[in-house]
Design a binder for these strands. Structure first.
Lengths: 162, 162
DNA sequence: GCGTGCCGCGCAAGTTTGTTGCATAAAGGG
DNA sequence: CCCTTTATGCAACAAACTTGCGCGGCACGC
């Protein structure tokens, strides 16, 4: 009984939480520095990080880039409503949205709309092309509402670790 | 004239783009491995990464965590409409939303609503408390619509680097 | 057309960081 | 009460990052 299911909440103590809070702000922080911050030796920190990576608590280690500097200055939010809620059609839509690199995020939601997308594009022309491929080509898309982002006030994947 | 404004698009060649594409998937990739992938030596890769970090093309290096494993299994999207569009009140709202750790993302948008928020909470009770602090306590918030996420189909900050 | 200066490269050495073996101490179960 | 398990720190080791240096390509100007 010592092995909980992979989806079950892992048993993390306050050391782990402190380490995670540092890593989700800056994962280039040396283990020695983390160790000093949480009052643990560097090897102890290293072993905890490795365990959390293997258990999936840490999903990935990534660099966050500035879209404007990379010629993709436009962020767009899209609410998508589907025709049929048949599960296979919903799953197909999920796969379709997830596979598009311009779709940064995709949420399947309750309420009037069925999906909420966050999209990054270089131009409105590029977005128009994307709507053809993603929405007009999918006969199960009944309606979609486009909202243009004026200011990316806050964009992170950080989780509140109280 | 060699120093463009910080917001101006940096001059990135295909080496830089290839490096960034690797880093935004896994920034723990050794520079030696990156070098082999892009046909460059490790020091060359290192100097390019450093330059892109200093210029701000790389905004941050972070670990992505699994919210469910951390006792925060609920993702909520909120559309917020404000009473007055006075710029000082809008800015105050931006600061207020950005300061809340439960608010993972905040976009200032066109259209009916004024803000779109992505929120991570442990429970609906916690969300109820957050609405009090964030929306009901702010007299400029006219209306907010809560949408509950059933499936986080795709959640990343990756930018399409074609 | 030919020098000259500027960049960015690769190589190699030096430095920091990450990793592993080992002995010890605290915690839980038989 | 002892034994197993688990996590720790220290020290040695391995790997990665970082820097100095000389070389070659490219653009500019003569």
């Amino acid at each position: 009984m010592t092995k909980p299911l992979p989806t079950a909440p892992a048993d993390l103590d306050h050391f782990d939480l402190a380490i995670l809070d540092i890593l989700q702000k800056d994962n280039a922080t040396p283990q020695r520095v983390i160790g000093e911050a949480v009052h643990l030796s560097a090897p102890a920190v290293q072993r905890r990080i490795k365990r959390m990576e293997e258990s999936g608590v840490i999903e990935a280690n990534v660099a966050v880039l500035d879209p404007a500097r990379l010629g993709q200055p436009i962020t767009i939010l899209v609410e998508v409503e589907v025709e049929s809620e048949r599960i296979d059609l919903i799953d197909a839509a999920k796969r379709s949205f997830a596979a598009a690199p311009e779709v940064q995020q995709c949420y399947y939601v309750t309420g009037e709309a069925d999906f909420m997308l966050v999209i990054i594009v270089a131009s409105m022309a590029a977005y128009e092309g994307l709507t053809r491929r993603l929405f007009f080509a999918n006969h199960n898309v009944k309606r979609f509402r486009t909202v243009v982002v004026m200011d990316r006030v806050k964009t992170s994947l950080a989780i509140p670790l109280t």
